[in-house]
């Protein structure tokens, strides 16, 4: 995971300011949705929003990801079905008296280059049926843990990655 805690360099300070403003506005909305509106909460909200914005800018500088709204919508529409399949699959195996598991590892060569977009894809893939990326091999491929190595995990990951790449890419 290539995580940098340095503040992004101010080579493009207008871009940074615009990114900071958008994110701070987003975190304000998130605070209002979660905590509701109350004048007494204002100091806590201000600290939380400022802290969240700072951390967010450190971890993902503005312009790092190119995001396609249509691609994200497609990803979001696909997600509930996948979540149901993943949950049903695990529940069925867990509750079956015979415990039908064939756990093991498969290697998957992702098309996404190493970076934050690939990390995002790995996090998403860990919510998908049967697959759990656990790290990168020395040759740059992904090591993926599978509950049942009889399942076509690589094909499934490739399909998932194609949808993900239309939504988010490293810029």
């Amino acid at each position: 995971m290539a995580t940098s805690w340095r503040m992004p360099m101010a080579t493009d300070s207008r871009n940074l300011l615009a990114g900071a403003t958008t994110r701070a506005a987003g975190f304000c909305v998130l605070w209002l949705v979660l905590a509701g509106y109350s004048l007494g909460d204002l100091p806590a909200a201000a600290v939380a929003v400022a802290g969240a914005t700072f951390v967010s800018l450190c971890l993902l500088p503005p312009g790092r990801w190119r995001v396609s709204p249509l691609g994200v919508a497609r990803l979001a529409l696909r997600f509930p079905g996948q979540a149901v399949m993943a949950g049903v699959d695990v529940a069925r195996r867990a509750l079956d008296p015979r415990l039908p598991l064939r756990p093991g590892f498969v290697t998957y060569a992702p098309r996404l280059p190493p970076g934050s977009a690939r990390d995002g894809f790995c996090a998403l893939a860990s919510l998908m049926p049967g697959t759990l990326p656990v790290g990168t091999n020395e040759d740059g491929t992904l090591l993926v843990h599978c509950l049942d190595i009889g399942q076509p995990a690589a094909a499934q990951l490739a399909a998932e990655e194609a949808v993900f790449m239309r939504a988010v890419r490293d810029g």
């Binding site: 867990a94 598991l101 049926p129 843990h145």
Partner: peptide, 27 residues
């Protein structure tokens, strides 16, 4: 419940992670 059963029955840490994330998220 299924996620918790998986957590108890699955043989290794990585398999247990599948149980926790996927079943509980759907729950």
């Amino acid at each position: 419940l299924a996620g918790t059963v998986g957590l108890l029955r699955f043989p290794d840490s990585l398999s247990r992670l599948h149980a926790l994330t996927k079943a509980d998220n759907l729950g």
